[in-house]
């Protein structure tokens, strides 16, 4: 998109790349009915996982990203989960409002994003950092099969590229 001016560019991210084992973590995982502590490794044990880091629930990039994902039909092949700094209560509302079929990890301290090297310190919101939009396709062994991390703000995943990676599993 050419806006005729510079958009915000992120510094290079030091994130897990193809072939590396992605960090495990445990956080409240929110469904449309409840939340409970769940380890990422518990999800990958059941099959490949598409892990999506996104902005706070209610921000337009989070909504856009989920719309893009919802338009695809990946659920038969893998588990799709999100992570943001929003509280379980906000996740619950977001799941309801967007009629989301996917579960969301709640990580208010942003430590999960830190462990993945995808922190975005927000300008104009003192003390608030959230994940940089990113996508990690993980195998049953939590090995990164595909990784995408936003290099501009805003930027969205190439869903066709993600789909090709999913198909190649």
């Amino acid at each position: 998109m050419d806006l005729g001016f510079d958009v915000v560019e992120f510094d290079d991210a030091d994130h897990p790349t193809e072939g590396e084992v992605a960090p495990d973590f445990t956080r409240p995982l929110v469904t449309d009915e409840f939340w409970e502590d769940v380890a990422l490794s518990a999800l990958t044990e059941d099959g490949p996982v598409l892990l999506l880091f996104h902005g706070m629930d209610g921000s337009f990039p989070a909504t856009y990203m989920w719309k893009g994902i919802q338009a695809r039909d990946w659920d038969e092949d893998l588990t799709v989960v999100g992570v943001s700094i929003s509280s379980p209560y906000e996740h619950k509302s977001f799941v309801d409002d967007r009629d989301l079929q996917h579960r969301l990890f709640s990580d208010p301290t942003n430590e999960v994003a830190e462990s993945y090297g995808v922190v975005h310190d927000l300008d104009g919101m003192a003390g608030v950092a959230e994940p940089r939009p990113s996508v990690f396709l993980l195998s049953e062994e939590r090995v990164v099969e595909y990784a995408w991390v936003a290099s501009e703000w805003p930027e969205f995943p190439d869903y066709d590229e993600v789909e090709a990676a999913v198909a190649a599993l």
Binding site: P28, E33, F34, W35, E36, D37, P88, K92
Partner: peptide
Amino acid sequence: YQSRFVETDHSERDV
């Protein structure tokens, strides 16, 4: 034990 936290609203606790 595993904790499952539910909605504050009584009417939403179908689970």
